[in-house]
């Protein structure tokens, strides 16, 4: 029973960054901007949050910095992908590379090491997992409502499905997408801050560990819809929680090697994705220039 409670608890905790990343990705992808840059955005905001706290010792400034860094990252990615009319996936991968190179470079210049920010004391971290979780759920609900009921949602969906419908009305679909990308970055930023200031104690190298891609998988699995994507995050998070639970355990005298246990969430994600063919729900103009 204790084991079960621990499992649920860790699944919920793990789902938090996934949900933020998936909701951010949802905003961006529904506008037609294919987003494989979620991983980079997570890392960027996790680093910005932790670095700010390391310098100022103020977790709230860290939170703000994480969200701001995410938004700036979203702006850079959005402008680069939309204005250049390049393939969004190429741009996303390049963005991830850029972040992967920039963080250790800056880290060394500021903190003298490339591995990460200094350890942060518990007193200067954001320790309430529950608040992050509630925020993520609330965000999903707001997104669900806003996509249906607001003019923002209407324009977002139009930009993702048929950008020319906006262009002929004198509305720039490119601008709608760039705005979406900024908002996406800010939302993902909350996930990044959760990683470095709540679940971790500072930034460590590559700390997102593929969560950006799993969130993208969850978003696709959830058919680009907020409620379903949120549930998919919980599902994928349970696979990760299972993995944590299994680490170091042995079954019938056979010690499970950790390297095998660690692949559980990735295999589960792949298989679940294959089980539900949801790609037909993709926004129609995704990854097409406007």
């Amino acid at each position: 029973m204790d084991l079960f409670v621990a499992f649920i608890e860790s699944a919920l905790r793990v789902s938090i960054p996934l949900m933020f990343a998936a909701y951010g990705g949802l905003i961006s992808e529904r506008s037609g901007l294919a987003n494989v840059a979620l991983e980079g955005l997570l890392l960027m905001s996790a680093f910005a949050g932790a670095a700010t706290v390391a310098v100022t010792q103020n977790p709230w400034l860290g939170l703000a910095a994480g969200i701001f860094a995410g938004a700036v990252g979203g702006l850079v990615f959005g402008v680069a992908a939309i204005k250049s009319r390049a393939d969004h996936i190429v741009m996303g991968i390049a963005f991830n590379m850029l972040v992967a190179g920039l963080i250790p470079t800056i880290c060394r210049a500021w903190f003298g090491v490339t591995g990460g920010t200094p350890q942060l004391d518990r007193s200067v971290r954001l320790t309430s997992d529950a608040s992050f979780f509630v925020a993520a759920i609330l965000l999903g609900a707001i997104l669900f409502w806003a996509l249906r009921a607001t003019s923002w949602g209407l324009r977002l969906k139009a930009a993702g499905d048929e950008p020319s419908a906006l262009t002929v009305q004198g509305v720039s679909a490119g601008l709608v997408r760039i705005q979406a990308s900024v908002l996406c970055g800010a939302v993902v930023g909350l996930g990044g801050v959760n990683l470095s200031l709540c679940q971790g104690s500072g930034y460590i190298r590559e700390m997102a560990g593929g969560r950006g891609f799993i969130a993208l998988a969850a978003l696709i699995f959830g058919a680009w819809k907020p409620v379903q994507a949120g549930l998919a995050c919980l599902l994928f998070a349970s696979a990760d929680a299972l993995q944590m639970l299994l680490q170091g355990k042995s079954f019938f005298d056979f010690a499970m090697p950790n390297s095998i246990v660690q692949i559980v969430p990735y295999v589960a994600t792949l298989l679940l994705l294959a089980l539900r063919r949801s790609t037909m729900n993709a926004p129609k103009a995704i990854n097409r220039p406007v």
């Binding site: 590379m97 850029l98 992967a100 190179g101």
Partner: peptide, 8 residues
């Protein structure tokens, strides 16, 4: 890591 930045 600057190499990665240049490549990106």
């Amino acid at each position: 890591d600057l190499a990665v930045v240049i490549q990106a």
